[in-house]
Design a binder for these strands. Structure first.
Lengths: 332, 332
DNA sequence: TCGCAACGAGAAACCGATTTCTCGATAACC
DNA sequence: GGTTATCGAGAAATCGGTTTCTCGTTGCGA
């Protein structure tokens, strides 16, 4: 490896002290204009780039953020990462990606390793065990939670307005004239699942209807669960269904397809979560999309201001969902 | 931030010098057993974790790898990243994710920034302008290219056997009894596109057929290109089509659906690239899947051995694809 | 003209590890 | 018993920046 020039080389070349070079390059005021020019020129000539290890050691911080997500294959999380990464780069940070894979011990290993790395900020997705997040907070690190509010910790958090999204989707189905609207939601212990169910019921009540338990199902947020819940619902003869998560939506569609039940003529479908292939499914799928990219950007913004002002009281940002109506829920 | 204990704290606590602590913790031989035990105990008691900034500054390296990919939303790349990340963690490295977004200047910015960061290894996806990769190599950094062989640079590279994959897919269509088999491939300047076309033709010739230019199309590897190429092909009345990339496959399917052309009864379809939603499309889509996760792991392995032995001659690893036959290409 | 404040820039300390250098003690050999 | 390897462990240098401390100079007011 060719030795890169150091601040001492630049200082010698410009005939000044390393301290002055540092001041010039960091934009500190009160350096003679002539010197400033000489330093800049020398730095450019030598192709000098400050060694960030040394800088960070002295400042005891880094320009690194870590994003700990539970599944790098889930398009929801990758879109978030992309938002964080774009915003981070604008602010001068690089992003380290950590894939906890739903395994608490893997996550814990990351946390201890990253703590030693002087990482300046963390963005953590909800699936984490609270103890791990707490370790970060206790070590005085800047932490932002996304998608779900961590229990018992006052943190900067970026959430999605699940209730509103579910309500809007259900209202749309009512508006289209569907009579027996069902809901498949996730495990009741997950706040996202219960919030979406609450929105579903609220929309029904707002239209003067009464939610019927026989038209509601809890499943596990996975494809198979959606399939089985839909099969189970069939006896109740719904003419529309709101499915509270992307994978379960796929499962429900598979059941309908297997049984030759036409969408939307016999059963209309609206799904929650962005599904990149929503438009490619036949018929194209109506969805409640989450602003994933914006979610990442917002988390980055919050993280930055937390770093700049560690004493600031925690804020919670809630983002709106957007209803995309496609053929799967349109009366013909 | 609560001050974390330093090596000096451990040294004081154990009644030895910092040098000895360093030797013990790095497993250097020839330290008295009693001292070793004292040091270990003190380190554990204080919860000491070496500051990796200081260590890396001294060693002038880091435990960081950078993966520069062109699109973090493309499932192909995220699967690769996941492979790199898993393997990297086993080897003691963290992975910094960089999304060049197909923009050469954004990529260049990353390269200069990362060079200053003493990143120890790079894994770069093909879309990069060669000049950027060359800058990394010239700076003496360990670099592994993935998916495409960079022109004019002898590098460790991990490729996929595109020709074989295309050949197998086409042979399958021939085997199913299709007569007029078409091919939609990518821009001819991209090696992946031309290799897949070559495999397509080879399979035809192996079956005693002659490739017909009117059944071949070049498009841009994007959805719209696939749609238009399929529209253009329709006049030639193919009864099957091999599409050389995931997004174009989606475009082709959309055209067929829009025109009411049934799959596979009127036109059979096989796509190249893993498509996570392949089984959810109706009919389920036959695909040539690439071993994306393995590709990432292999790249990580190569990078590690390059770091350990910088003088080693470059190796090229080529991975096999796998044909998944589903309903879209099965005679009924 | 003198004194003091303000200011600009260099010298040196510092961040927290690793690694070389050095020295004292023990062991081995003649 | 004396001299020389051997070895273990501490002192100090080092990595390459940033930041404090210090000092010489200038400018302004009295």
């Amino acid at each position: 490896m060719v030795g890169m020039p150091t601040i001492y080389d630049v200082a010698r070349h410009a005939g000044v002290s390393p301290a002055t070079v540092s001041r010039v390059l960091n934009g500190h005021e009160g350096v003679d204009a002539a010197l400033t020019a000489r330093v800049r020129e020398s730095a450019a000539t030598l192709g000098y780039r400050p060694n960030s290890l040394a800088r960070n050691l002295r400042r005891s911080t880094t320009n690194l953020w870590a994003v700990i997500i539970s599944d790098v294959n889930n398009p929801f999380f990758t879109a978030v990462v992309r938002g964080v990464e774009d915003a981070g780069q604008d602010l001068g940070y690089s992003v380290v990606l950590c894939n906890s894979d739903e395994q608490p011990d893997k996550e814990a290993r990351y946390v201890t390793a990253l703590l030693a790395d002087q990482i300046s900020g963390f963005i953590v997705s909800p699936t984490s065990r609270t103890a791990n997040i707490r370790a970060l907070v206790d070590a005085g690190r800047a932490v932002v939670a996304i998608d779900r509010r961590p229990r018992g910790l006052a943190l900067d958090t970026v959430l999605v307005d699940n209730e509103h999204g579910a309500r809007e989707a259900t209202a749309h189905l009512i508006d289209q004239g569907y009579e027996r609207i069902a809901c498949i939601t996730g495990p009741s212990r997950l706040s996202t699942a219960s919030q979406r169910l609450r929105g579903f019921r609220a929309a029904l009540r707002a239209a003067g209807r009464t939610p019927e338990p026989e038209l509601e199902r809890h499943a596990d947020f996975r494809e198979r669960g959606g399939y089985e819940a839909m099969a189970d619902l069939a006896a109740a003869r719904p003419d529309a269904v709101f499915v509270a998560n992307n994978l379960m939506t796929v499962g429900a569609l598979e059941f309908l397809s297997d049984k030759g039940i036409r969408v939307p003529d016999e059963v209309a479908v609206v799904g929650f979560d962005d599904v990149p292939w929503a438009t490619f499914i036949r018929p194209p799928l109506s969805t409640v999309t989450q602003p994933t990219y914006e979610l990442g950007r917002t988390a980055a913004t919050l993280l930055k201001s937390r770093i700049d002002d560690p004493g600031r009281p925690p804020t919670v940002a809630t983002l709106r969902t957007e209803l995309h109506v496609r053929a799967s829920s349109r009366r013909r």
